[in-house]
Simulated assay, not measured.
Amino acid sequence: MFSKADLTSCRRCHRTVRWTTSEAGKAFAVDPDPNEQGTTAVMRDVRGTLRSRRVSADRPLIPGERLMMPHAATCTPPARGATPPPRTPPRRAQPRANTFYAVLGVSRTADAMEIRSAYRRLARQLHPDTNPGAGDRFKAVTEAYAVLSDPTRRQVYDLTGRAPRPR
């Protein structure tokens, strides 16, 4: 239900919090772990957004919700003069180790002929008729070639780092 991607750092106390969206549409921080004494119900909606609401006698906890403590109840700023923990830099998209260029074994500056010859060489080696155990690798090579052989799809891939949607 919860993932590590939901966790961030509180700006006041620098502890880890989980940000949700309240019923009023505002950002609302809760402590990262479920808590029996908590007053906030948290669940992930159909769009994948973490939603939170206040639990009361009129609106008890329903299946799929976890009881959590609002972070405002436990947030204590560091003492004056205390040095805050080092701030981590914002996360940037890391280049994937398994990029399409690495799959084909070519450099980012490879031209169309290099890409085509690398694909053909790998296709002969990995085709399921000649190598029954390499079906998944063959699919990855074929997908990489489909993106890198089309100049517009390759440009989108180079800019975003993601394969563009098939047409």
Score class of each variant (00 low, 15 high):
Met1Val: 12
Phe2Tyr: 15
Phe2Asn: 10
Ser3Asn: 11
Ala5Gln: 15
Ala5Tyr: 15
Asp6Arg: 06
Asp6Gly: 03
Thr8Met: 04
Thr8Ser: 06
Ser9Asn: 10
Cys10Arg: 10
Arg11His: 06
His14Arg: 11
Thr16Tyr: 06
Val17Trp: 12
Thr20Gln: 07
Thr20Met: 11
Thr21Cys: 02
Glu23Pro: 10
Ala24Glu: 07
Ala24Gly: 01
Gly25Phe: 10
Ala27Asn: 09
Ala27Val: 10
Phe28Gly: 01
Val30Gly: 01
Pro32Asn: 15
Pro32Ile: 15
Asp33Phe: 13
Pro34Trp: 12
Pro34Glu: 06
Glu36Trp: 10
Gln37Glu: 12
Gly38Phe: 13
Gly38Gln: 05
Thr39Glu: 10
Thr39Gln: 12
Thr40Gly: 05
Ala41Gln: 07
Ala41Tyr: 14
Val42Tyr: 04
Val42Glu: 01
Val42Met: 04
Met43Cys: 04
Asp45Phe: 07
Val46Gln: 15
Arg47His: 05
Gly48Ser: 08
Thr49Tyr: 12
Thr49Met: 14
Leu50Asn: 00
Leu50Glu: 00
Leu50Met: 01
Arg53Met: 00
Arg54Ile: 05
Ser56Asp: 11
Ser56Ile: 09
Ala57Leu: 07
Arg59Phe: 05
Arg59Trp: 08
Arg59Ser: 07
Pro60Lys: 14
Leu61Phe: 11
Pro63Met: 15
Pro63Cys: 15
Gly64Arg: 13
Gly64Phe: 13
Glu65His: 09
Arg66His: 11
Arg66Ser: 06
Met69Asp: 08
Met69Cys: 07
Pro70Ser: 09
Ala72Arg: 11
Ala73Met: 14
Pro78Trp: 13
Ala79Cys: 01
Gly81Phe: 13
Pro84Ala: 12
Pro85Met: 09
Pro85Tyr: 10
Pro86Phe: 14
Arg87Ala: 04
Pro90Trp: 08
Arg91Ala: 04
Ala93Gln: 14
Ala93Trp: 14
Arg96Pro: 04
Asn98Pro: 00
Thr99Glu: 00
Phe100His: 11
Tyr101Gln: 00
Val103Thr: 00
Leu104Cys: 07
Leu104Arg: 07
Val106His: 02
Ser107Thr: 02
Arg108Gln: 08
Arg108Ile: 01
Arg108Gly: 05
Met113Asp: 03
Met113Glu: 03
Arg116Trp: 03
Arg116Asp: 03
Leu122Thr: 02
Gln125Trp: 09
Leu126Phe: 14
His127Arg: 09
Thr130Met: 11
Thr130Arg: 08
Asn131Asp: 12
Ala134Thr: 01
Ala134His: 09
Asp136Ser: 11
Arg137Asp: 04
Lys139Asp: 04
Thr142Met: 06
Ala144Ser: 03
Tyr145His: 07
Ala146Met: 11
Leu148Ser: 00
Asp150Arg: 03
Pro151Glu: 01
Pro151Leu: 02
Arg153Glu: 00
Gln155His: 04
Gln155Leu: 06
Val156Met: 05
Leu159Pro: 00
Arg162Lys: 09
Pro164Gln: 07
Arg165Ser: 04
Pro166Arg: 14
Arg167Val: 02
